[in-house]
Design a protein around this nucleic acid. Structure first.
Lengths: 391, 391
DNA sequence: TAAGTTTGTCCACAGGTTGCACAAAGGTAG
DNA sequence: CTACCTTTGTGCAACCTGTGGACAAACTTA
């Protein structure tokens, strides 16, 4: 059934509009909200007084006068509730308590040696319990839990496949709901990263942005027309399995010449072994390679450049397809940005369609290693605020 | 300034909802509209009476009783106005008069030998004038003109580049506005095709659909979340310039290994020449190749199969990236569907990610050669109906 | 023929926004 | 210091639209 419009809906929409305006411009006066939204002053006053009752907005002292009566400034009360937001990675779990602004209040990170679901789940639950215990007292308490996973996740929150964790058909959402009596959100890590970067990484959030999460594999989160795009079933963004080399290296996905067989952490390590760049007594890890690159190891630098060029190929394809405003590179290969920038930029500049390069920014994730965590926080907050309308 | 909600907006939204319901379910009674929309019976009555006054809806005789008073059936009056919708191709112009249902009332097609803008524009204006002259008398007359072009079109309707027409920076919209005092819409041909197929090619329009227009080059129109996605500047969909062969054939776009260098009308003809499939006294055209294929020319069939496999590669990439519900192939290569289906389906089935193949339909355009025309009609109609709200 | 059902209209009512008047609070110029 | 202007925020009447129920019309069914 389509949504019908009546006075109640109007009020909720306007109330949400006022709250969003306050969040984005805090501190702001009632008069300024009225001007910015186009709503009548009286309407704003009445909606604001409800928002104050609901603890989402607080009044601070008077602001500076602009030639008349001094305004009462309104503040968004980001401490009215908290989220527990988790980045469940391969070999680690990073969990954070955030406020309603997505600001991290407390963060915990634990290495998990084995990726068996039972062990991971136990660690996850323990971390979440810790954070909930430490949450400050607030009007709404912990409003929800969000977990970003490197997996194909259905719209219903089921983990269909997590190749790097070796998981298949896991009801993570259900399992968490059995433990915690809170709303649970499960999302793909790249989708969450994209959303986090869009919401919290820019002064003016881009409307069309592709976030390429390049770690062991490659996934993408896509912000299109200001919204996260997830595809028909929630599986979009598998840019790692885009063929860029016809009849190329075969991939476990069943295809050949896949992007992520030429540009990923996995590939870097494979080449490091093949080319004997890492000795037997050294750790086979990205960090080892980074150290060598810092020490100007020519062969490692050469490898980085080669991978950079392949990333350039993949991103050029994406740019030509989407005409995005921003392309961000996140996840593990973000740590290689110093070396990757020149080959990537060079490739894109020389190969992408000229029109698409106007107004295009190619950059690395800005939220350090918190893209996924903050994205999950954003989802949880948004869901919470949206659900208020149904009351 | 954000849009504010008030009683007027509520009314316009509900009125639009009622009209859409009538359009989609015509004929339908007031009571059924109320049930389907969730609106109150009284509200529906009053909105319908306005729609009747505005000539968008007419009453027909009583319908069948379902055990009580017989309902008065409401019909959408598709003849309340007409659009002139044009497919401006390479070498031809196809223009049609459509009603508000997108049904073609009259269609004119003219071959244009040279693609100089002056000649094309003269022909275009002449065709449009003819159609306007023949438009039936109606309440709103001709409500707008839409032109789909094989070009990079800005959001503002400027043709930035039409490689196959050899046009650059042409103000087509402005030029038409100088001649006709009607709203003018200019869109990329693939975007229009996608929209036309989505709106008029299905009983239940798909929400996520990729329309690959494979002609001389390859472009795509993307319907994402039920809306046409055009990218930051309106240039999205250049899937023809996605690299599928690293270090492959160079393309005039400056890149190498582009999709459209392996799978397009252009490539078919180039290979036909190179392999001596077409004799000197024969016409170098797709139609010649089709005739030979119909006659079971093994070499031609082999060529079609090769191209089909490349199309499979490109579409597999698209499917992995978007997780669409429907992928359609339109434009010239639609005529080769008989021969292209097996290799394309085989490639996609064996290579695309399994999850993405669930609920996926790969097919050819269903609106024959009217995808673009009907898409432009849909844009024009939608714009007309939307603008009614501003009155 | 009577009872029940469905359709569509009418009308009082509720709730929301608007526009304006007005009070409160501060600035500014002489 | 005073008089006047500007800005902010509240209060209130007017207006608009959807809702819900009553009701009449029209038809089916037993």
């Amino acid at each position: 059934m389509s949504r019908t419009w009546n006075q109640y809906v109007v009020k909720q929409e306007n109330k949400a509009l006022v709250l969003t305006t306050i969040i984005n411009h805090t501190p702001i006066s009632r008069a300024a909200v009225a001007q910015s939204t186009g709503l009548n002053k009286g309407t704003v006053s009445s909606l604001v007084s409800e928002l104050i009752d609901e603890a989402f907005v607080t009044e601070s002292g008077p602001g500076a006068s602009s030639g008349g009566r001094r305004p009462v400034m309104l503040l968004f009360n980001a401490k009215a509730g908290f989220t527990v937001s988790v980045d469940l990675g391969v070999g680690y779990i990073q969990a954070a308590l955030t406020d309603l602004n997505g600001e991290i209040v407390q963060v915990e990170k634990k290495q998990v040696k084995e990726s068996t679901f039972d062990l991971v789940f136990e660690t996850l639950v323990h971390l979440i319990e810790q954070l909930i215990k430490h949450a400050p007292v607030s009007r709404y308490g912990v409003i929800g839990i969000g977990v970003g996973v490197p997996a194909v996740v259905s719209h219903e929150g089921e983990i269909l496949l997590a190749p790097n964790l070796n998981w298949k058909n896991i009801q993570l959402k259900q399992a968490l709901e059995d433990v915690f009596d809170l709303p649970i959100l499960i999302e793909n890590e790249a989708n969450a990263g994209a959303y986090g970067e869009m919401r919290f990484g820019f002064k003016q959030p881009p409307k069309d942005m592709i976030y390429a999460s390049i770690g062991i594999g490659i996934g993408a989160g896509m912000i299109l027309d200001g919204k996260l795009y997830t595809g028909k079933s929630g599986f979009s963004g598998e840019i790692g399995h885009m063929t860029i080399v016809k009849d190329g290296t075969s991939c476990r996905c069943g295809n050949v010449g896949c992007f992520e067989r030429y540009a990923s952490e996995q590939v870097l390590l494979e080449h490091a072994v093949k080319r004997h760049l890492i000795k037997a007594n050294e750790d086979l890890s990205l960090d080892t390679l980074i150290k060598k690159a810092e020490a100007h190891d020519q062969e490692v630098l050469q490898l980085f450049e080669e991978v950079g060029e392949y990333i350039g190929i993949g991103l050029t394809n994406i740019i030509n397809i989407f005409n995005p405003e921003v392309v961000l590179i996140g996840n593990r290969l973000r740590d290689l940005q110093k070396w990757l920038i020149p080959p990537i930029e060079h490739y894109i500049h020389s190969r992408a369609i000229g029109f698409h390069q106007q107004d295009l920014t190619v950059d690395f994730a800005k939220l350090e290693n918190f893209s996924t965590v903050k994205g999950m926080a954003a989802f949880t907050i948004e869901r919470f605020l949206a659900q208020l309308k149904d009351i």
